[in-house]
Computed example of a mutant assay.
Amino acid sequence: MGFFAVFFFTLVLAMAWKAYQRMLTPGSVPLRWLTRCLACAAAAYPLGVNGREVIDAAFTVGTAKVVQDVLVLGMTYTLLVFCLYSAADDGTAGRRVRRETVGFVGAAAVVVTAAFTAPDNSVLHSSFEDADMAAPHALAFYGTLGLYMLHTLTAAGVRTYRYARMSSGAAAAGLWTLTAGLAGMVLATGVRTGFLLVRAGGATVPHWMTTVSADLLVLSTPVFVLGVLWPGMCAGWAAWRLRVHHWRVYRRLEPLWRLLSSAYPDTVLPTLGRRGAFRYARRVIECRDGLIRIGPHLGTTSAVEAMAPGELALRLRQAIDDVHRGTVDPSRTEPLRITKYTGDEAEGVQHLVAVSQALQALPAGPR
């Protein structure tokens, strides 16, 4: 039960995250359908574990089973639509999606009708393992489920396999994982559909074979979901690491920023937001502006890269002290030479950090 709870919690978080991304990019059609796919999965999953009692208590016993099966059909349908929109333009994909929508509505209608019109509610009160597949309603119910899932999962799996072969990095890892999950679901669904036809003909299938196919279907579902989530998880991890890096640089630049802004408060940009990326960029810009302003008073014509961070830190503090005392020569306007880091943003920022840390290491002096 612990695994199922963790998996369900992951599904809900993934659906919420995709819904948030959809709010940020409302024009993304593939993202819209992927969000719907995860919503169907998140809604269907608890009904297969221990959430049936609530719905069955409010309606007829077996209603939760039908709702779950329709949601599973919706999950496979929305997954296929996501693949279609991801591979083609909206116009081309739209025609295929309309055909798939008709198929989904038809399959769902057959499933619901067969379940609620069966004599003595036999479909509602049975499961795949013990249903009488020779009965027309049971055959229509389980046969429609199996064939429709086999169609959508196979079509989505073929497209995912093609994308995986053309991809690299985190996207490829996610697509290959998704392909593996879909392959397991297709295999399990195909085997169970074959069992259905065998049982409809009057033969029997060993119970252990039915159990193995059901376990394969259950185990393939988390793999499928992991494949859907993997690229987003990798992107989120990379974004989190970048935010942490920006926060650390922001904090480490504080000694340099405080020194420069004390002499040139007009270099401090207005506060327009509290986002980490904005604060990081603003601090870097303010430190560079302050260096340019103080450059003519450093008493050297050397480029920044020619001075060790410790030497530059010492010259900066002396120059800032002169600015505070009003002893600087206003006629000096030679800018500080910065040549090496103009094309390498990361290296330039690291040099600023080194200077800032060198400032912090200097012994306190009179002001």
Results as ranks from 00 to 15, higher is better:
residue 244 V to Q: 12
residue 72 V to N: 15
residue 164 A to L: 01
residue 156 A to S: 15
residue 109 A to H: 14
residue 28 S to H: 05
residue 153 L to Y: 10
residue 58 A to V: 00
residue 259 L to F: 06
residue 73 L to S: 09
residue 44 A to Q: 03
residue 9 F to K: 03
residue 56 D to M: 02
residue 210 T to D: 07
residue 227 G to N: 14
residue 56 D to T: 01
residue 6 V to Y: 13
residue 40 C to L: 11
residue 5 A to F: 03
residue 46 P to M: 03
residue 274 R to N: 13
residue 108 A to Y: 13
residue 83 C to F: 06
residue 176 W to A: 15
residue 252 R to N: 12
residue 196 L to C: 03
residue 201 G to V: 08
residue 212 V to K: 13
residue 144 T to N: 15
residue 126 S to Y: 03
residue 207 H to D: 06
residue 7 F to G: 15
residue 58 A to Q: 03
residue 223 V to M: 01
residue 188 A to T: 02
residue 283 R to I: 05
residue 311 E to K: 00
residue 317 R to Y: 01
residue 233 M to N: 00
residue 120 D to E: 12
residue 182 L to S: 14
residue 211 T to G: 06
residue 22 R to N: 08
residue 97 V to C: 08
residue 29 V to S: 02
residue 199 R to F: 13
residue 143 G to S: 01
residue 319 A to F: 06
residue 309 P to K: 09
residue 283 R to M: 11
residue 256 L to P: 05
residue 350 Q to G: 14
residue 147 L to F: 15
residue 350 Q to A: 11
residue 131 A to C: 06
residue 113 T to I: 06
residue 42 A to C: 14
residue 145 L to D: 03
residue 333 T to L: 10
residue 219 L to D: 11
residue 152 T to H: 07
residue 178 L to F: 14
residue 232 G to K: 10
residue 364 A to W: 01
residue 333 T to V: 07
residue 314 L to S: 14
residue 86 S to I: 02
residue 111 V to F: 03
residue 336 L to I: 14
residue 86 S to A: 07
residue 89 D to G: 14
residue 171 A to F: 04
residue 251 R to L: 11
residue 4 F to S: 15
residue 281 A to G: 07
residue 61 V to K: 10
residue 357 Q to H: 10
residue 209 M to T: 07
residue 195 F to E: 01
residue 324 H to C: 02
residue 70 V to A: 09
residue 327 T to G: 01
residue 266 D to I: 07
residue 126 S to C: 09
residue 314 L to A: 13
residue 131 A to H: 04
residue 223 V to Q: 02
residue 123 V to W: 01
residue 274 R to H: 10
residue 41 A to I: 12
residue 329 D to C: 05
residue 84 L to V: 07
residue 9 F to I: 12
residue 79 L to A: 04
residue 187 L to V: 08
residue 328 V to P: 00
residue 171 A to R: 13
residue 179 T to K: 12
residue 197 L to G: 12
residue 365 G to D: 00
residue 163 Y to C: 02
residue 75 M to E: 12
residue 277 A to D: 13
residue 66 V to T: 14
residue 124 L to T: 08
